[in-house]
Nucleic acid binder design. Structure first.
Length: 439
RNA sequence: GGAGAGGUGGCCGAGUGGUCGAAGGCAACCGCUUGCUAAGCGGUCGUACGGUCAAAAGCUGUACCGGGGGUUCGAAUCCCCCCUUCUCCGCCA
């Protein structure tokens, strides 16, 4: 969420920033500006009246309770109380409308985010590794995995529907090994603290990292029956399956004030991720590129604003380290303003080479959010003991998407006979095997 | 799922209808003092949103005692619902 004061005082700057993202809604910002004005007026009237009421109340405390004046005064104050109540209600109505609106505004792109509205304007930063060349026609991971009997899409469909996969034998072992390898690397070499978070979160958490309210369609909401819905409503929250570990891990410090010395904080977490992939019909329907459930190791960093950009580069390098250790050819792309996620100021996508698609495909997205998420979560730190708390900056990135890593390994390490080499770094996690073959 | 007890400021902990943003203590910060390892004294010591101001400071208003609603002229204090923590029983991985 953006700072309301900043938005109202820099309306044109905000408008221009939004335009760079392709978010153009003249009426919205004008409405917001008017609402902000109304909000201030509502606060002033309500609080002035309330102050009068309180002052009168203090006199009542000292007054002779049995006097006729007291009774008379009490009757008069009854009217004031009703007025205050009405004014407060009006005030919270305006504030509710305003904050709902604020929740729908995207973050402002960083100055250096390239112009452009879609992926064609993304800028390649660097290319790493040599794309494997084959003296045979490379297969895609579906063919390889099915032939090796380590991926089973048909049975997954039978038991769960489209966009699921069953991993079997060394396929499962590979998925598990990758999870271990990634976490071990981030924890032991990159200094991250390991987190194993819940996979179900409240809507508050989803709002904190900004999956809600705008992207409710992409998430799986937990629903049971009418009674469950009623209980949820009474409890004041909904529950969602996490679409990424970013949600529970970032929200770890919601409503907290951290000390400067604690920063930066770096967490790494493995979780399953659940996405409804609404609106992606017909996209990546083949294989395990886009699934309703997938595994991912996520890195999350919290830091002071002045360290944020360096921290973003650092986190990106940690994601790259995984690809490098696995010997997977990839490139780093800086996303243009229009292609970035809703909450990001700047974003690097790591794209791994997939011979089966003859294309680079996203395997990690490393974003710097500024204080956008922190403001929604109310996550702050104290620069020094005497200073007022300030909002943290948050940064996160996949390190990496495990399923897509598995896909990349199958495709980049495939041999003419349909077997697949195991990257050296992974062998300890594969029981010492250096090759996956059909047994 | 059943029974009981709690949730107050960074921490501990008073406070059962009015003068409480909240005693006291600890921690922290600033200063002074002493000087034999750490002590003494004084001060400061919440957050948010408004108003005033060119702005900051300052001053000032309002809100916040787990969350929400209610009663009342007035609620940290009374009532209701919810969340959560602890203990015991049951169940379960």
């Amino acid at each position: 969420m953006l700072d309301l004061r900043f938005v109202t005082e820099h309306l044109e700057e905000v408008r221009a920033g939004f335009a760079r993202r392709g978010f153009v809604d003249e009426a919205l910002l004008d409405k917001l500006s008017a609402l902000a004005q109304r909000r201030r007026e509502a606060i002033v009237t309500a609080e002035t009246r309330r102050a009068e009421q309180k002052k009168a109340g203090q006199e009542m405390a000292k007054a002779d309770k049995s006097s006729p004046e007291f009774t008379e005064r009490r009757e008069a104050l009854r009217v004031v109380a009703a007025e205050v109540k009405a004014l407060e209600a009006a005030r919270s109505a305006v504030e509710a409308e305003l904050s709902e609106l604020m929740l729908h505004l995207p973050n402002l792109p960083a100055d250096d985010a390239p112009d452009g509205l879609d992926e064609r304007s993304n800028v390649v930063q660097r290319v790493w590794g040599e794309r494997p060349s084959f003296d045979f026609k490379p297969k895609d991971h579906v063919e390889l995995g099915v032939d090796l009997d380590i991926l089973d899409f048909e049975r997954a469909t039978k038991i769960s529907g489209a966009r699921f996969v069953v991993l079997k034998g060394l396929g499962s072992r590979l998925e598990r090994g990758l999870m271990q390898f990634m976490l071990d690397t981030h924890v032991d070499e990159h200094g991250y603290t390991e987190i194993w978070p819940p996979a179900i979160v409240k809507d508050d958490a989803m709002r904190g990292t900004s999956q809600l309210p705008k992207f409710a369609k992409d998430a799986f909401r937990i629903a049971k029956d009418a009674e469950w819905e009623k209980e949820n409503e009474a409890a004041g929250h909904d529950l969602y399956l996490i679409p990424t570990a970013e949600v529970p891990v970032t929200n770890l410090h919601a409503d907290e004030i951290l000390e400067r010395e604690q920063l930066p904080i770096a967490y790494a977490a493995y979780t399953a991720c659940f996405r409804s992939e609404a609106g992606s019909y017909g996209k990546d329907t083949r294989g395990m590129i886009r699934q309703h459930q997938f595994d991912k190791v996520e890195m999350v960093r919290f830091c002071a604003p002045e360290d944020a950009e360096a921290q973003h580069e650092l986190l990106t390098s940690h994601a790259e380290a995984i690809l490098q250790k696995l010997g997977l050819a990839y490139r780093v792309v800086k996303l243009c303003a229009g292609d970035m996620g809703f909450a990001a100021k700047r974003c690097y996508d790591l794209e791994v080479w997939l011979p089966g698609q003859n294309a680079y495909r996203e395997i990690s997205s490393c974003s710097w959010f500024g204080d956008f998420q922190a403001r929604r979560m109310n996550a702050r730190y104290r620069p020094s003991p005497k200073e007022k708390p300030r909002l943290l900056h948050t940064i996160n990135g996949s390190g990496l998407a495990i399923g897509r890593t598995l896909v990349a390994i199958l495709e980049q390490y495939q041999e003419a006979d349909g077997s697949v080499g195991v990257p050296e770094a992974l062998r300890p996690y594969m029981g010492g095997r250096d090759r996956i073959t059909r047994d």
